[in-house]
Design a protein around this nucleic acid. Sequence first.
DNA 1: AAATGTGGAATTTTT
DNA 2: TTCCACATTT
Length: 753
Amino acid sequence: MDAAPAIRVSPAVLMSSTLLDPLNPEQLAAVTLPQASALILAGAGSGKTRVLTTRIAWLMATGQATPRSVLAVTFTNKAAREMLLRLSALTPLDTRGMWVGTFHGLCNRMLRAHHREAKLPPLFQILDTQDQLSLIKRLYKAHGIDDTRYPMRQLQWFIAAAKEEGRRPSMVEASDDFTRAEVEHYALYEAMCQREGVVDFAELLLRSYELLTDSESLREHYRQRFSHILVDEFQDTNTLQYRWLRLLTGPDTTVFAVGDDDQSIYAFRGAKVANMQRFERDFATVARPVKLIRLERNYRSHGHILDAANALIRHNQARLGKELWTSEAKGEPVRAFVAATDADEADFVIDAVRGHAADGVPLDEIALLYRSNAQSRVFEHALFSAGIPYRVHGGMRFFERVEVKHALAYLRLVAAVDDDGAFLRVVNFPSRGIGARTQEQVQQLAQQRGTSLWQATTSGALTGKAGAALATFRQLVERLRGDTQALPLPAAVEHVIHASGLVAHYAAEKDGQDRVDNLAELVTAAEAFVREAEFAPDAASMVTPDSLAAAPAEAPVAALPAFLAHAALEAGDTQAAPDKAALQLMTVHAAKGLEFHTVFITGLEEGLFPHENSVSAADGLEEERRLMYVAITRARRRLYLTLAQQRMLHGQLRYGVPSRFVDELPPELVQWLAPPRAFATASGPAAPPPLRAGRAATQGPSWRIGQSVRHAKFGVGVIIDADGQGHDARVQVNFRDAGVKWLALDYAKLEAA
DNA sequence: AAATGTGGAATTTTT
DNA sequence: TTCCACATTT
């Protein structure tokens, strides 16, 4: 216990030590805070990872903590790896024994160690979102649930939302029939997961939370052990994660939470910024109030970029308050461009990228950001034609690919034959004559007898051709199991992808080479996993935290389940690292945490960014504005804002209004490369054709699609569609603030704007 | 069991 | 438009 730690190194020595030297006064204050919980408001580019890691190193250097007593939690595996990496450079101490990981990873670890108390089988499997959906699909089939009345995705969302609020089915309040039905489905889902010994992502957290709630001894054990808890990206914690942290916090625990309320962009996934406000209250003790430190000095961007970011975010009401500053030069102005069409927007960006690349900015230091994935298409098309290498982030990740999923399913069966999800995935892949009919018979049999699908096939109740085919499959799995028993993990994976017939299957397919490559890559991933496990058994190991001696690499039986958990918890990167520098394309969400020399924020039109679905949602607009804030603060030196007057959206031509976020920037910071709001000009190259003669021409001015108009109540907007003739003539207007409305020209007093 | 057709939906997504 | 899931063919 570290209740009254002895400080072994004098502050004077520390001040001059290399550990604290690179810190500014606020960072230093944060790193060297005395025993008390603290909330560090760390702005974008303010060195929060440095503070977090140096804090841990300092705690250990001063004897206030040992590796064993530190728990550091992040949201992404990447962040956890980064922290561990930087930590090993800062401290001579062995970082093993330290718990550093994602919420999910740490909960998984805790549940593996105490699976009995958590009422889970020792080899419980983790379902990713895909697996979860296919389980729900089976659930619907088994119980005859109508998926048109109760869309599966909606149930998936419902379950995750309930669990993230810490609610089991019995705890969900249902005031209407629909919700009552969903709760019922939730209960059935839970029973099914429990029967099959699988847990979804949210379940990892909830189980771990309940474990700590129910077992006083375990709670006390972990409270005593972890005297220092550090949390990264605190603004992204959800209700359950917050409560989990509170449970782990005993009277002698100090929590060091680092976050930025202005960068909270995951409320739609259950993240609660309010946790930051609550923190001050909930984590204070009588003796030690929560310390609050702001890190506002930015080391990333030039002045104009920060000025733009500050000005934008000031439009938000719900803030803890913070203003970034830098000692760097003001730099270039923010450049803005209005393109006629989405294709023109792409051309503009490509021209600029070419120019900057020629000036020596590396391509991978240039990012093209957009609000939604669909927007990448136009850019990809243009970049392809222009021959500029690019990389799109997002989309299918390594462990999510079908071929990898299939291989993992075989491995899951090798680890535990009763895994129904894995069974169904590969029982007939590659096809071996076990069709839908046979599979249904097996499922029926399993349901009747209350067994797993695998058990059902061993009953011998299925005879004839179907029975024989099933027997072949069983033998295959049993053989895989026997063959791999004594093999090290990578060799076992190698064996399974071949002996299962997967490699042969894809090799015979005409476009299967990529898939064969990915299967080979899975072997590489297993090798990397084993290496990592040897290097830092703590990070990957699934054995009990206090008996780490058994290195998974040397024990294949233990390595496989660990690898499977790893595959579920770490979905892997989108693509292998490109061998040459490439322009970076991604959503703004995906850009969080990254930085680039030059950033293009594209599609800055009302309805796109801010997204139309967000404008009506409670606090939706503020979240969109934070998203824009995140986008702006990605840029170090150069920032472009672009938009298109018209673009194809859902196969239809849409006319956009410039995003309010552009207007919210101080005009003096923005240099327009084309006239701002050129939307009203009748002669521009993008001016759409006038409406058909006689349509609305008799009613005062002649209206055109694409024309800017003003309405007494709704404000300014752009005509995006028209309909009817004479006194029935109506126009559809996309108002900047009021959204899309149909207006009868006879009644609505529109004027050109 | 693959190939082709059809209807509906179409933010963001660290785990 | 384009992607997807599902249903119908071949």
